[in-house]
């Protein structure tokens, strides 16, 4: 193992990526909580959000220029909002087209999975057609450089932006689910949809809200992800599976579990990639997924959205 600097650098990198996984994982977890279904097309919501943020920020930033100061902050915020809105729109369309018609017909579980897979196939190939099939960088919204050094690890501006945004979103969602009336209905539906319906909760609305909420998060997360790793039409797949792994690791259906799982997975991947080889990061993540599912499918914190977090 390397020096203390290396260790802390790996930790910081792992936590940063992990925070992104956590943001995406929340979408899986929320939808799973209310529908008991894995939303296979969530990765495409993430991808479309990334494109939304990318194109919005490209429209504002002239080529070659690198803004600074308050302009930068404003642009980042604008890109995040655009990404989030694009993600939310995609998630809403997804629920409307691929899930609701099946729910109305009382389809079996397998049908939802297949339909979501179809939606995923449709969405990412359409994105490839409309936006081109090469990977596209997000324009520089700020001067990237080392801001601060912690225990020898360099934290860049970008990492800081990503970490702060992710943290803010995670806190907001946690508050929303645990402490508001809307969150209360979401938890009620998660525990017993039929009963919640009887008690006057509009189940249909809660489902839509859940999808949109997951879409907002995934869209903003997609923009953050694209700032580091660029955007492309196939970008959703791998982070999607990893975020799902994070959700399962923490206990799918459990909001705080998703956060914990995301951070843990980021760390495991970061250190594992260092120990073996960076090209095996994905294999490591898949292995974690399989192991968790086999050994402790309920995850670290248990699987209920409804339980008091």
């Amino acid at each position: 193992m390397g020096s203390a600097e290396q260790i802390s650098q790996l930790t910081i990198d792992g936590l940063m990526v992990g925070a992104l996984y956590a943001v995406i994982a929340l979408g899986y977890t929320l939808v799973y909580g209310v529908l008991q279904l894995i939303n296979f097309a969530h990765s495409e919501v993430f991808m479309l959000g990334a494109f939304g943020g990318l194109f919005a920020s490209r429209a504002l930033v002239p080529a070659g220029a690198t803004p600074s100061g308050l302009t930068s902050a404003g642009l980042v915020l604008f890109g995040l909002v655009a990404g989030a809105l694009a993600g939310a729109a995609a998630a809403y369309a997804l629920e409307r087209c691929a899930y609701r018609p099946l729910r109305r017909r009382g389809a079996p579980r397998l049908a939802y999975l297949i339909s979501a897979i179809g939606a995923s196939l449709f969405a990412f190939n359409l994105a490839g057609k409309e936006f081109g099939r090469q990977s596209i960088p997000v324009p520089d919204l700020f001067t990237n450089g080392t801001v601060v050094t912690v225990l020898g690890a360099e934290i860049s501006t970008q990492s800081l932006v990503i970490a702060c945004t992710a943290l803010a979103m995670l806190l907001a969602v946690d508050h929303l689910v645990a402490g508001t009336r809307l969150g209360q209905s979401v938890r009620a539906v998660a525990q017993d949809a039929e009963c919640a319906g009887l008690m006057g909760v509009d189940v249909q609305k809660v489902i839509v809200v859940t999808f949109v909420l997951g879409g907002l998060l995934a869209g903003a997360g997609g923009f953050l992800y694209a700032m580091t790793f660029n955007a492309s039409y196939t970008m959703g797949f791998v982070p999607g599976i990893k975020a799902f792994t994070a959700a399962v690791l923490g206990g799918i259906g459990n909001v705080r579990g998703a956060v914990l799982g995301g951070l843990l997975l980021g760390l495991v991947e970061s250190f594992g990639g260092y120990l073996f080889d960076a090209s095996y990061k994905n294999v490591i993540a898949f292995t974690v997924l399989v192991l968790v599912l086999l050994v402790r499918p309920s995850g670290l914190l248990g699987t209920r959205l409804g339980r008091p977090a």
């Binding site: 691929a98 297949i114 939606a119 995923s120 449709f122 057609k129």
Partner: peptide, 11 residues
């Protein structure tokens, strides 16, 4: 794209 659409429509 079409295959994806076919899957959704069939389901």
């Amino acid at each position: 794209i079409y295959f994806g659409a076919v899957v959704i429509l069939m389901m």
